[in-house]
Every structure is written in C-alpha cells, then in structure tokens.
Design a binder for these strands. Structure first.
Ligand SMILES: [Zn+2]
Ligand SMILES: [Zn+2]
Ligand SMILES: [Zn+2]
Ligand SMILES: [Zn+2]
Lengths: 129, 129
DNA sequence: TTCTTATTGACAATCGTTATCAATAAGCGG
DNA sequence: CCGCTTATTGATAACGATTGTCAATAAGAA
C-alpha cells in the first residue's frame, strides 16, 4: 500500500493504544482478546495487520517467543535492546553503544554489508526470584 | 524420558549425520526431504524429535527464522553466536567475549539473575553483494 | 532368544498467521 | 454537506509448521 494513501482508522488507534497500555511483550491474539473484553468488535486479522504496520514503521518492537509466536511491544526511543524477565515478562529497554559498534565491526571484518542484529538479554527479575 | 533409558537408533544417527552435512541452518522439513531423497523412510515427526533432542543436549544450535520457522545447525564449540548472510544463509560462528560479559553485567545491574542472551548478526556476505 | 518398553512413522489435530472477499467507511473533490 | 473512490475491515477459509496419538517396531537388558 502506497504510504500516501494510508488511512487512519479507529481500529489502528485502538491497537496502538492497547499496545501502549500493555506491560511487556504481547501477542496479536492477546491484544485482540483485551480489545474484545473492552467492547471492541475489532477483527483478529486487523490486529495482526495493525501490529505488522506498527513494527514496520518502527513504532513497535517485534520479537519471536521461544515457541515461534510473534510478540510486540510499544517502542519509545530509537534503536535499543531489551532485558526481559523470564517469569513475569517485565522489560527494560537498554542501549548498548559498545555492542552496536561491536556488531558492525564483526560484520565488516567478515565482509558482510548492511549489518543488523538481534540482541536480547533474559533473566529473572528481583520480584520474581 | 529418563536419560538413562534413552536408546540409540538408526534414525537419530541419520538426523545427526544429515545435520552435520548440511550447510548453514536447515529446518526439520528440509532435513526430512534430504533424508527421504537418500532413500530413508524416516518420518517427519521423528526428525522433529531428533532435532529437538540434539538442541536440548547442546549438539545443535536452534534459531527462529524471520517467519517463525525453527532452524537447526550442527554445533561444534561451546557457547558462541552467529553471523548470518541474509541472502544465502552462510553462517560464521563468532565468539563475543566482550559482549558475553556486557550482557551479564547489564542483567546484574538491574537485579536480574541467571542471565542468558540471544545475539545474532545478519548481513550480506561477500559473494552475495 | 525373549521380553520390556522406548521409539518409530502415518496420520490427525493444533495453533499462529495469512489470504480471500463482500461490506464498510476514510477522506477527497465538488 | 454529498457522493465517489478505494483503503480498510472482519468473518471465515486456507495455510504451514509443529505436536499429539497410537499401533507397530526394534533396542537392549536379562
Ligand atoms: Zn523497544
Ligand atoms: Zn543494537
Ligand atoms: Zn520478573
Ligand atoms: Zn553469548
């Protein structure tokens, strides 16, 4: 879809808002349930589409859960990474200047161009020990 | 299954061997096809089970492809990470001494225990530019 | 060899995600 | 404000990867 012809809809706003309220990473299905519980009649496919858009435009982070489910989280700053509690899903955004550079260097050393990376740290948070 | 009662089978060896021959990361389905093409009558479910075992015992690396498919790769050394070509899938094992430490530090700083991490670098390799 | 039971493989079932398509409504021009 | 174009929606079907089921098989101990 041509970016200039994109329309703003009540549904997209609802998804954006629900994602903002959510704690930690959530799946499209979870978000759909939440919206339904709040009286919305939004369709599941629409939630999927809205989340994919948000991720594509950089307004949300996406990551794969261990069992292959796509999880999303509203994203405030630019490029960063996450420290995630295995138990409760609590998420802390971290930046990693040093690591960003390191990743790019490693790629370049091996002749790889247009480097990107995925870096996530998992652990058990204080309140979950 | 109790580790002590695990049996060695022709099928498990076949999967282990096929994984060793494979270049880069492969899916269970790909491996199943290869084995079939070499005359094996191994079942798809068995390939899935064997790969899961190999990953659990540390004999294989597993990672999620962008579209949620589980990919496996025979794994020689201990803990390491991968530099992966987006185009051809060529994979280089890298170690990341500095980053390992950094990840553990970040976790500790925020009170997270038993830290683990996922670190993967993607790029376009020389022969794919 | 015999016996126990872990493992297999064909198949069905599940689950997350995507495609389809008629109905709706955003937003533009008049 | 009104009508028109067409992007978007939502119900549903389709899809693809993975897992569960279960009778048949075969590892490995006795
Ligand atoms: Zn973020
Ligand atoms: Zn980064
Ligand atoms: Zn926690
Ligand atoms: Zn590491």
């Amino acid at each position: 879809m041509d970016e200039s012809k994109r329309r703003n809809t009540r549904q997209k706003d609802a998804v954006r808002h629900a994602l903002g309220e959510a704690i930690g990473f959530v799946s499209a299905q979870q978000l759909h349930l939440v919206l339904r519980n709040f009286g919305s009649t939004i369709g599941l496919a629409t939630v999927y589409r809205a989340l994919a858009d948000l991720a594509a435009s950089g307004d949300a982070d996406a990551l794969q859960s261990k069992d292959g489910e796509l999880l999303y989280r509203a994203c405030t700053t630019d490029h960063h990474h996450h420290l995630i509690c295995r138990a409760c899903g609590k998420t802390i955004e971290i930046e990693a200047e040093r690591v960003e550079k390191w990743a790019d260097e490693v790629a370049k050393e091996h002749g790889f161009t247009q480097p990107t990376h995925t870096i996530d740290i998992f652990g058990t948070c204080l309140s979950c020990q």
